[in-house]
């Protein structure tokens, strides 16, 4: 199925170069504090606060394995919602034994919600009438800042940094090439304006809600979203990528994502979701173990053979 006939907006590169330049002009000013409650006998947890564009103070959970050596790093980009966990719900806490973990909370999410507390629903259309005011410009900058901090940690093996998330893992990998691997399950930033017309489900329904109330803004909304479309970021992604597609027939199935997969600048494997958190989770962890040179996948007890 072919979706998304929109074209790359004029000034796409300039828009993002300006955003990154704005970010570079601001010191990150990290504040790092140990978090004994989430520390274990195999990993130490920390809270991290950083400055992003705005200027705006963002948050992250950091976990460092105990012991010496360089470790691969998992950079968890937030999914759509207010809560950010140290490691994603349902995954093995044991992943913290062998990997540095950094989970960033972008502006508006809990722990990064002062002075801006995002609404859910609401975030997806906040400032959407203009690319310069759209909240996701800052969110993408937040993700880049988080990566910069993680990559600068002396415990991190710079050759093994994997960004894991939905759309933002690809976006960040495109803008911040220090990422070696990507796991991405696109959901909101791939031909979003077209996808929204084909669903009544949130979060994309937020776009429909907005246009129902402000129908004259349609072209402006399409223009703004085009600056965030993964299709235009894909050629810049040089990391090895696992692209998690929907099942056949779903809006973002492998056929729909194929044009983007083929345009990625690095190696890409497309995996069709089975709608089983177990099967998809095991596949992802095995892929990560292979790519990062780990002795085996990090699986919670119920996923183990």
């Amino acid at each position: 199925m072919t979706i998304g006939n929109g074209e790359k907006p004029d000034g796409f590169e300039t828009y993002w170069e300006d955003t990154l330049a704005e970010l570079a002009a601001l010191p990150a000013a990290p504040e790092v504090a140990e978090l004994p409650l989430r520390s274990t006998d195999f990993a130490t947890a920390y809270t991290v606060r950083l400055t992003s564009i705005g200027p705006y103070r963002i948050f992250g959970y950091l976990s460092i394995p105990k012991g010496d050596g360089l470790f691969p790093a998992r950079y968890y980009l937030p999914r759509y919602g207010s809560v950010v966990d140290l490691v994603p719900q349902g995954t093995a806490n044991g992943q913290r034994r062998d990997c540095v973990i950094f989970s960033v909370a972008v502006r508006g999410q809990r722990l990064a919600d002062q002075p801006y507390a995002a609404s859910f629903p609401g975030l997806l259309t906040d400032g959407i009438a203009d690319p310069s005011s759209y909240v996701y410009r800052g969110i993408v900058a937040d993700c880049c800042r988080g990566l910069e901090y993680l990559a600068g940690r002396e415990e991190v093996d710079a050759e093994r940094i994997v960004a894991i998330g939905a759309d933002l893992s690809l976006t960040t990998a495109a803008l911040a090439p220090r990422i070696s691997h990507v796991v991405s399950s696109p959901s909101l930033s791939y031909t979003a304006a077209d996808l929204a017309t084909r669903t009544e489900a949130y979060p994309l329904e937020e776009i429909n809600d907005y246009l129902r109330l402000y129908p004259s803004h349609e072209e402006r909304v399409r223009r703004t979203l085009s600056y965030f479309d993964l299709r235009w970021f894909a050629p810049k992604v040089t990391a090895t990528t696992l692209l998690v597609a929907g099942s056949d027939g779903e809006a973002l199935d492998a056929a729909a994502l194929n044009p983007m997969a083929e345009s990625l600048g690095g190696e890409c494997e497309v995996y069709k979701s089975t709608h089983s958190g177990f099967r998809d989770g095991v596949f992802t962890e095995e892929w990560l173990a292979r790519q990062l040179g780990m002795p085996g996948p990090s699986l919670p007890p119920h996923w183990q053979p």
Binding site: P36, L37, Q89, G90, T91, A92, N93, P301
Partner: peptide, 17 residues
């Protein structure tokens, strides 16, 4: 005891401290 995953891990974290 059955899983090491969050959110139940919050209880284990609490009891550890």
């Amino acid at each position: 005891d059955l899983t090491d995953a969050y959110p139940y891990q919050e209880i284990a974290d609490y009891l550890r401290t």
